[in-house]
Amino acid sequence: MSETKKFLYVNRKAPYGTIYALEALEVVLIGAAFEQDVSLAFLDDGVYQITKGQDTKDLGMKNFSPTYKALGDYDVNKIYVEQESLDARGLTLDDLLPLTWEDEDDDWAEKDSIKVISATEMAKIMEQSDVVFSF
């Protein structure tokens, strides 16, 4: 593959009630091997995917939320979360999983992957993408 495209994965659905969140994450993990310019967007109920404290034991379902923490190791470190979506749900950044990555160009300094942005900024991120995957 010679060209690099800007891939945006848009997550707007909550986890567990439907499978979209889990299978979207599987696409992101496979896609990471293709060395494209990858960003993730979490908005609307999608912000619930990356909240802390998920425990699915009593459901008999797999808790896949720890997998989001591995995204940094796959060089997926542009994770955009929409402020308005957090506000509407009474959530703040503190309610979200601490997603980080290590910057090899900066002596492997640990940096935050999550950027909380406004809906207007989210619209710009979407508009700058070459391919949008919707789940």
Binding site: M1, E3, K5, F7, E26, V27, I30, G31, A33, F34, Q36, V131, V132, F133, S134, F135
Partner: peptide, 18 residues
């Protein structure tokens, strides 16, 4: 799933129906 990623790279347009 790599086939989906490849479709995104190789195609001029990718459209999702769901």
């Amino acid at each position: 799933l790599g086939q989906l990623i490849e479709a995104g790279i190789q195609s001029d347009r990718l459209i999702t129906f769901g």
